[in-house]
């Protein structure tokens, strides 16, 4: 089993924390993992992306050059990562914010209204969790439970009710409720 993932969006969309969460969940699940963030000079509003590898074998390079899955959280990220996605790869698109669609026909596209669902949960900041839920469902690389278990380790200062909301968002993303 091998999943090379790129998650991309605006700074502030929780791109980096989503990546850390996936890696942590993978580790708790007994997988080999790595996480590597882009670290630009800008602190807010710039583009943010990260590489995550979840594998049953040793992770070689942590920089995912040909992802199996790309999670596209904002408009510019689509054009940026479409060319690199592996043939047959998966693109999860946040359709709340991304209006264009990929040109490639050799990839699988899943549209998720991440922001809309997050708004429905009255927690606009957790659109990223909706996307992760979709990722779990589509790839089977991780279970929702594994991600939920990693949450208190990664969001150390989050209150229990916030963690509960996050789990709700994961489930909505996975289409579980």
């Amino acid at each position: 089993m091998f999943q090379g993932i790129r998650i991309s969006g605006f700074g502030g969309q929780g791109i980096i924390s989503s990546g850390v969460l996936l890696a942590y969940a993978g580790m708790l699940d007994g997988k080999h993992v790595s996480f590597f963030p882009s670290y630009g000079a800008e602190m807010r509003g710039g583009t943010a992306n990260c590489s995550v590898v979840i594998s049953s074998d040793d992770v070689t390079t942590p920089v995912v050059s040909q992802p199996d899955t790309v999670i596209v959280m904002n408009e510019p990220s689509l054009a940026k990562f479409e060319p690199f996605l592996k043939p047959g790869g998966l693109m999860i698109i946040n359709e709340s914010l991304v209006k264009s669609r990929p040109q490639r026909k050799d990839i699988k596209v899943v549209l998720v209204a991440c922001n809309k669902i997050a708004d429905e949960l009255k927690a606009p900041k957790i659109a990223n969790m909706v996307a992760l839920g979709a990722f779990c469902k589509q790839t089977g690389a991780l279970s929702i439970e594994a991600v939920a278990k990693a949450m208190p380790k990664v969001f150390k200062r989050a209150k229990p009710e916030i963690l509960e909301l996050n789990i709700q968002a994961l489930k909505r993303g996975a289409g579980l409720n």
């Binding site: 850390v20 890696a23 080999h32 790595s34 996480f35 590597f36 963030p37 670290y39 942590p62 920089v63």
Partner: peptide, 10 residues
């Protein structure tokens, strides 16, 4: 280097 410094691993 920057990659090893910034990346996370178990």
């Amino acid at each position: 280097d920057g990659v090893l410094g910034q990346m996370m691993e178990p």
